[in-house]
Design a protein around this nucleic acid. Structure first.
Lengths: 230, 230, 230, 230
DNA sequence: GATGAATGAGAGTTCATTCAT
DNA sequence: CATGAATGAACTCTCATTCAT
């Protein structure tokens, strides 16, 4: 028995289905790649492993997807696209901003709960893995989401954001949106670690702190330490 | 005593200072390793690079630090320790909880702003890099911070957290603490990208949304969608 | 009959002309192969490239030509045949030997100037590329040419070659023929690099040194160093 | 027994001499590489083979020589240097040009006869093997030699070269030099195939045709076909 | 007859890691 | 104590070659 057989068998090789059209094979390969990348991270994953998990030979991987980095990028693109689509579809524009954000968060938590690998890929591994263009691509996606949330924050509080005459607060809404997204990320991890809960509950948790705090903050309320700083 | 050579020599191969006590050598190596890991990430960094940056030969590196993974872990331990210490020192226990959290956040944002390499290591590269023990290590640190914040949240709202008779809210404070920490991370990145601002400002931004929203939320206020979900 | 598609379609993938007699297909493939081999060399050329350039699928290539090496050999055979034929046709046997050689050289230089790919194949790539049989094949061709030239040299100087009673000069004519052929090769490269000139000029250059030197040499003239060798 | 052992053992692995200084190891590696490249050509030679022939591991090859292409270039540089040096040392500048060329040719034929691998490398494999810079390098060497010969030709015939008032013959000496060098190459191959002879004999053969033909040619003698060309 | 789909085998390259001086 | 010298083991990627339709 060869020594590396044990680890190679860790990921289940798909049942050999020969001779299928290119588009379909490509999806299978992406499925396998997402799964392996999510498990091992970009660097530790080997193309051999991915090929085996996908039930194809390495040359097919390269023929269809180009290179390891392109493969990784394709995975990220597909999964990020799914997440963004879920978010956007759930945040119906005719709703009030709070409901939009709530809907989007529900979709987000559902995605995180249901597609573990996708989320692991996007959240853990995309940050520091591939080359510059790949990271940029995923950063782009995050920026889109933040921009959408920023718009919602702005709409929610009217023009309150721009009342500061000094202009120092111009990025305020963006900062809040960043905080919301970051909090959602963290909460998602917490939910996963804690054992899961309905996505609606997670979304409500977040909204119940962040959205409720939004209004007084935008009216001008500021945190002031009770004790003077050093 | 010579001027502080240790911190300055991080990237430049220090002029060979032979015969130096082991503990000091080790710190020099860690300095170099932190710098290199932060720049290239765990996998792309090579032991050659680190040895050269530290002005030592590779066998010394291995003799003192064991292996690449152990070296990485040692870096994380040291830097995480620094962050936790900074946070804890700033959150003086005799202050009211809000002030404690505020102080801790100021320290956090200062750390992020001043020790870029350390933060890059902890935030970007630790997530998906080493094997299990390394990841566990960093997860441990995060959990410590979250626990501290959780305690503050509990103290801040009195026993309100446990009022829910169904017990469904038992993790509420923890969830909020997670969200706060996640929001702080995200805000830190935003600040870095936006060009920097005084750490007090960043801390105030966060407190002005999260802490202000905390009180009504704990009094029982909940977000309820204006439109019934399907 | 359509305009001469065969030679034109060497690099551009010819518009798919299906159902074409085997012999013709084969020539098209050879055209493509010659062009690609000449451009990239034997090893760097890929069968994919050749198949695409020829407007056929790879299995056809293999069906008709066998293997990469056989394909290369077929190319060499065809092109070498062309060169030898050109040389022979130009060296009309009823002419005096000098005129025969001159005519052959003119044909040779014309071939080199007009069929660049063929010449590149024969001169550059055949030397070190395929396995033994291929090299042998090309060596064979060269030997034919040298033999023809040798005969001309012999005829030109009468039986002078065999006059040496010691027999040490038995290969003399052959050696001279080799030198002539080598000089022609080198001159061909020089002409190509220098920008080209009428083939008659190149042939005359060569004849004006080599042929003129032939006669005194065959009469017994020998180079003798002015200074005694060590 | 592993299946590739047979072919690997084809080149004799040097007796394991461990721990030697870098410069020396490098020479051994180059020796091995020259031998293997000469035998198989650039593309067919594998780094494994070279490493084994040199009694080192592949990483050493890469550490010392950089890459396959750089290794090949280093081989060419070393061998070409040897050949040029031999030629130059033998062509003492105080001698008359004919003796200089004769001496150089003797050295050349000696080199070809004694260092078969070097010559195979330079003559067969360098033409179409490595990337552009490598080929250029070797081309450069040939050009140096041709330039030296050109100078000798010029000196030998005085200013006869420039007598042609039309200027069309400006490259004449260069063309003759090219022809001489090409003839030497070809003769070298012939000598090798025929079984070898003293280098002085080969040099005399060449001089006895080319150099003797030089003078009348430079006096204006031209080959004129006895029969008018078509 | 003709081809899209598929692969076994091997190449160059790099790295963490360890002797032997 | 300290290091130049050395390597086993992988990894990404490519190519000639062949099924199965």
């Amino acid at each position: 028995m060869r020594p590396d057989q044990a680890t190679a068998a860790a990921t289940v090789p798909a049942p050999k289905a020969k001779r299928m059209p290119r588009a379909q094979r490509e999806q299978l390969m992406l499925d396998a790649a997402v799964s392996v990348f999510a498990k091992s991270g970009y660097h530790s994953a080997s193309m051999d492993e991915i090929a085996e998990a996908g039930g194809v030979s390495k040359p097919m991987l390269y023929l269809y997807l180009g290179s390891k980095e392109e493969l990784f990028a394709a995975c990220l693109r597909r999964e990020a696209g799914g997440l963004v689509a879920a978010f956007r579809d759930a945040a119906a524009p005719q709703l009030p901003p709070g409901d939009q954000l709530f809907g989007g968060l529900v979709a987000f938590f559902r995605f995180v709960g249901e597609r573990r690998d996708s989320w692991a890929l996007l959240n853990q591994h995309a940050r520091s893995s591939g080359g510059e263009p790949v990271v940029a691509e995923v950063g782009q996606v995050r920026r889109q989401v933040v921009a959408a949330v920023t718009a919602l924050v702005r709409r929610a509080v009217g023009s309150g954001v721009q009342e500061d005459p000094t202009g120092r607060d111009r990025g305020e809404a963006a900062a809040i949106a960043e905080a919301i997204v970051g909090a959602a990320d963290a909460l998602a991890r917490w939910v996963a670690e804690t054992g899961g809960e309905p996505p609606e509950d997670s979304a409500r948790r977040l909204m119940s702190v962040l959205w409720i705090g939004l209004e007084p903050r935008m009216r001008g309320a500021r945190f002031v330490p009770a004790t003077p700083s050093n």
